[in-house]
């Protein structure tokens, strides 16, 4: 992506007392991007969004929107909107009044307000609920209202703090698709915080993996998944076999082995119940677990305990205690950097 960045974070840090919640984040976000910020609980995701929204003042660094520093701008005058984790719908206002609230604050005329609120409610697929109160809606509907209430203001950036965490699994997957559709539709930059790696990988144009107050890797979902830079990212995103490189010698030969730590994704390991040609190593299935589309096998081979994923259709003969042959190709071995603390 190119062009001047829409939103820029320059060495943004925030500490509460002695605790550093955000420790110097530098990143630029482009117009129209869908970015997921992925990280474990307590790593500073919410704090980062609150810094951008204006509810916290950075201890250091700068935040700029369309080239203008936001530091001295109070939240009500920032052209960004936040979808709160608990939605924060106003309980005493109807759905329509909730959606119109931001326009009313900007003194948009009543007729215009109504038109835009209708459009926003239609966008989130919630027509004809305008006269209800938030308490009369289901969790998924409240979520949509929260998104409509923020989007109707046409912010430059929409911030979403774990917007789907309060929903059950099925609804969450449906809403993921909805969010993506809505974002495509309006073309607004979405900054979506989540601790669910599946959600991040399936939704985002780019994923920023956050750990202990820092962005440890930013890239496309494919890059993050296939080329994680460090063990930390590798283990956070997807199931992983993290193996010291010398231990791979049975597969790669002494020349292919070397120093450092490597990653091999479970679905990249070839497995068969019969001997294979090429450099296959024999092992024993210790345990299998059935996941519907795939079967997960825990295999002891060459002194390693490896996790292997096989399409269920190809899993015949992979029973507990069975002898199996494993193959690992050099191009599926990813070198990992040591993590900085």
């Amino acid at each position: 992506m190119s062009g001047p960045p829409l939103l820029e974070l320059r060495d943004v840090a925030k500490h509460f007392g002695t605790h550093e919640a955000v420790r110097g984040v530098t990143e630029a976000f482009q117009a129209g991007e869908y970015v997921c910020i992925l990280g474990a609980s307590g790593c500073g995701k919410t704090t980062l969004l609150r810094l951008i929204a204006g509810f916290e003042t950075p201890s250091r660094g700068d935040i700029a929107l369309e080239g203008q520093s936001l530091i001295a701008v109070p939240p009500e005058r920032r052209n960004v909107n936040l979808v709160f984790q608990d939605y924060a719908l106003f309980p005493h206002l109807t759905v329509r009044a909730n959606v119109e609230f931001g326009l009313e604050m900007r003194r948009v005329a009543a007729a215009d307000r109504a038109r835009r609120a209708d459009a926003a409610l239609a966008l989130v697929d919630l027509p004809a609920t305008g006269d209800r109160f938030p308490q009369q809606l289901s969790g998924g509907q409240r979520q949509r209202v929260a998104v409509a209430r923020a989007l109707v203001n046409e912010p430059a950036v929409l911030l979403l703090d774990e917007p789907l965490s309060a929903l059950d699994r099925g609804l969450r997957q449906q809403m993921q698709a909805e969010l993506r559709r809505i974002q495509r539709n309006v073309g607004i930059t979405f900054l979506h915080v989540t601790h669910d790696q599946g959600e991040a990988l399936s939704l985002a144009d780019r994923v920023a993996v956050m750990h202990a107050g820092r962005f440890v890797q930013v890239g496309t979902p494919r890059e993050i998944y296939e080329r994680p830079r460090s063990r930390l990212v590798a283990e956070f995103v997807g199931a992983s076999n993290v193996i010291p490189r010398p231990r791979l010698a049975p597969w790669l030969g002494p020349s292919g082995a070397g120093d450092g730590v490597t990653l091999v994704r479970p679905e990249r390991i070839g497995i068969a119940a019969e001997p294979m040609e090429g450099r296959a190593v024999v092992g024993t299935v210790r345990r299998t677990a059935y996941f519907g589309a795939t079967v997960e096998c825990l295999v002891d081979a060459a002194g390693l305990a490896l996790v292997v994923h096989v399409p269920a259709a190809a899993a015949a003969g992979l029973t507990d205690g069975a002898a199996v042959w494993l193959r690992i190709a050099a191009e599926d071995v990813v070198a990992l950097a040591e993590d900085v603390a």
């Binding site: 939240p75 909107n81 924060a88 923020a150």
Partner: peptide, 27 residues
């Protein structure tokens, strides 16, 4: 009283007086 309601109102452009009149007092 959830603080997030106040923050949501400010996020939507309400100044202190509007937050008081439109959100806090009614609730």
């Amino acid at each position: 009283f959830p603080v997030s309601l106040v923050e949501a109102a400010r996020d939507l452009g309400a100044g202190p007086l509007a937050v008081l009149r439109r959100i806090v007092l009614p609730v």
